[in-house]
Design a protein around this nucleic acid. Structure first.
Lengths: 338, 338
DNA sequence: TTGTAAGCGTTATCAG
DNA sequence: CTGATAACGCTTACAA
């Protein structure tokens, strides 16, 4: 392991000078020394020891991407702890800016605090945070925090979100415009201040606007694992009154379609289905899925930009960015006006 | 930040003793001191500074999960939904053993070396490594390396893999047993010493065993993005000779099915399709996809166990573990014997 | 323009 | 049983 000291000796200068050159504090160093140091760095293959830096400088260049697991949830592919859609995008942007990404699951608030102290973590990403004790802990941290897909807000915290309300509204409105009146709402558990809650409000408002009474018995909340979603589909097949379903996730929509199919119902002839997210799957099912599109990689990228700005103490113009959605029309919804 | 020194002062002992107690070197410490130290640790909320530990002890508890990007590829670290399946499992197992997971994409060998030095990385996971210069670099590291889904081998390196050959054989054999003779092979680029290559061998051997001549014009290699896979499906629809397709990934199989469908072909009536992996998608398409099952979370877990054993210098019984596959029969394959 | 030296939090060596 | 003390690699006042 080549160290700064090795470079200093090779060149015949002090550690200070080497350190200064490395950090571009090149104002008070002669041009010649600079080149000689840089040559030595290349030749000897110097690589900074981040632990040492971190120890002395209270900046570690470590960014945590944490996922908060409510106590004993089972890990499944659906319940992907790391929201794989945008994590690649996050790692890339972070790396290009000289940061390192640590993935960590925490169960309790003190798990989080310990983790942050362990590595002197510089900044944090979290997804799907609710208004709870965990969020409170987040707000009192002294490091930048960027929340993704969370409807909790605080002056200390930046948010990257989606037009969830609009998405729910747009989807429902689309179904209404196609002549549907008995529209089921399928989603995971509708938690206050969560993305699903917002989509739910959009659903309800679209109904109200069309003077269609909201009925609680058209709301179906359940887990997103494959077996459960398929079961919901077969259950919906027995409900003669329902002509359309709005599912708040494509994976859920697909499961419902599979269940309907298994029960002998045809989509969209017998019942229409709308999804949300516009993942690849939507183009692979038969019929293809009409859905609300969102740009996950962009979400990741924006989240990083937010964090970088805060880390570099740039003025934060706004604490929040909301990505637009749009409807992608495919085959899973049928018009009742024919 | 509470440090060891704070604890030492509070209890009235030296740093050494505190450190010893923390590490269970409790042989030469009085029972009373131990409890007093532990109480202080709780009360003052001591959390170890990993950077400091790392600096002094040449073990950082950092494990890298690296993905090697061939320079100009756009794919990111978890572009493959299948990879994200076991990354959660890896983080969990690592965490339970006191380690931390860093995600990192590297393009060149020296990117890798630098990263390792930066953080004094204790161990490494890599997926899909081929016999190239990058692999050579891996073999000469002095830290434990566990390869996942890679068919390169070296005494210094552990492998966690799958019965890819058997998978290819089993899938093809199944199609043959159903009376198919003109069986297409669809996959991403077949690289020497890669998982796809193994599956390809299994395909060829199953044909040979059934005395069906191998035909290169039944082999289709292309990218796995949705548009391309669907295009392949429509292309296959024009090939009157083909009665079945073996795709080496479910995502590919689904795309092909969508393309066939779009071109007016019915699966499995007109053409049969087999997948590989058994991801959720297989149960969501219509028809559901007959496929080769593999256990991704188990793969992740075993990879971690391998690494832990090497990190703790436990005797390595075998350098390699190959997970079994099995066929899951669904609806996308039709028997020609009726 | 460059060097000295202290100190970050921890562990390890060696004395007491 | 316990405690000084050096060392890990680096940054940063402060000197020169």
């Amino acid at each position: 392991m080549t160290t700064i000291k090795d470079i200093a000796q090779a060149v015949g200068v002090s550690c200070t000078t080497v350190s200064n050159v490395i950090h571009g504090k090149t104002g008070r160093v002669s041009a010649e020394t600079i080149t000689r140091i840089n040559e030595a760095i290349d030749k000897l293959g110097y690589v900074p020891n981040m632990s040492a830096r971190s120890l002395v400088s209270s900046s570690s260049k470590v960014i945590g991407m944490i996922s908060h697991l409510a106590s004993n949830k089972k890990e499944s592919i659906v319940e992907d702890p790391f929201h794989s859609a945008f994590i690649g995008s996050i790692e890339k942007t972070l790396r290009e800016n000289g940061y390192y990404l640590m993935l960590r699951t925490v169960e309790t608030t003190s798990d989080l605090i310990n983790f942050l102290h362990n590595w002197n973590v510089d900044g944090l990403f979290c997804t799907g945070v609710f208004q709870d004790e965990f969020f409170e802990a987040l707000t009192s941290l002294k490091i930048p925090v960027v929340l993704i897909d969370s409807y909790v807000s605080h002056p200390n915290i930046c948010n990257v979100g989606l037009e969830d309300y609009e998405g729910g509204y747009t989807a429902t409105r689309y179904l209404v415009d196609k002549g549907h009146k008995n529209i089921a709402f399928a989603s995971p558990s509708i938690k206050e201040k969560g993305v699903v809650y917002e989509r739910f409000q959009g659903y309800k408002d679209a109904l109200k606007e069309a003077s269609i009474p909201f009925r609680q018995n058209l709301v179906f909340e359940q887990e997103l694992d494959t077996a459960t979603t398929i079961a919901l589909g077969t259950k919906l097949a027995t409900r003669k009154d329902i002509t359309a379903v709005f599912a708040t996730a494509d994976i859920l929509a697909a499961g419902i379609m599979a269940g309907l199919n298994a029960a002998g119902k045809r989509v969209p002839e017998d019942i229409s289905v709308m999804g949300f997210d516009d993942i690849n799957l939507c183009q692979l099912t038969s019929p293809t899925i009409t859905t609300i599109h969102q740009d996950a990689p962009l979400k990741g990228k924006l989240a990083v930009y937010f964090l970088m700005d805060k880390l570099e103490n740039k003025p934060i113009l706004k604490r929040e960015v909301i990505l637009p959605i749009h409807l992608v029309e495919r085959q899973s919804v049928k018009s009742l006006y024919n």
